[in-house]
Simulated assay, not measured.
Amino acid sequence: MPLDLEEQEQVDQLKAFWAKYRNIITSVLTAALVIYAGFSGYQWWRNNQAIEASKLYNTLVTSIGKGDKEQTLRAADDLEKQYSGTTYASMASLVAAKVSADSGNTDKAIDYLRWTADHASNDAYEALGKLRLVTQLIERGTAKDFAEADDLLKDKPVKGFEALWLERRGDWYLAQQKITDAKKSYEAAWKQLDQTKEFPEEGRRLLKVKLDAVGGVTQ
Rank of each mutant, 00 (worst) to 15 (best):
T86Y: 07
K183T: 12
R114Y: 09
V95E: 12
D171N: 09
G85S: 15
D145K: 00
K154H: 02
E162V: 02
A143L: 10
G104I: 12
L166Q: 04
F146H: 14
I179E: 12
V95D: 13
P157E: 05
V95F: 09
E187C: 01
T135Q: 10
D107Q: 10
A143Y: 04
Y83D: 14
S93P: 13
A149L: 08
T86Q: 04
G160F: 04
F146M: 15
S103G: 07
F161L: 03
Q136D: 12
K183L: 10
D150K: 07
Y173D: 13
D181E: 15
L94F: 03
G141L: 13
S121N: 13
E187I: 11
K159W: 00
L174V: 11
G104K: 02
R169M: 08
E167Y: 01
L113R: 02
D151C: 00
R140E: 14
W165A: 00
D181W: 01
E167D: 14
A89C: 07
D107E: 15
D111C: 04
V158G: 01
A120T: 07
T86L: 06
A147T: 15
D123I: 04
R132P: 14
E148R: 01
K183I: 13
L128Y: 05
Y112G: 05
W165R: 01
Q136N: 11
K130N: 08
T142K: 04
D111F: 03
W172R: 00
L94H: 04
K183F: 13
A109F: 05
D151F: 02
L133N: 10
E162I: 00
Y186W: 11
L152S: 04
S84D: 15
R169N: 08
L164A: 13
S121E: 14
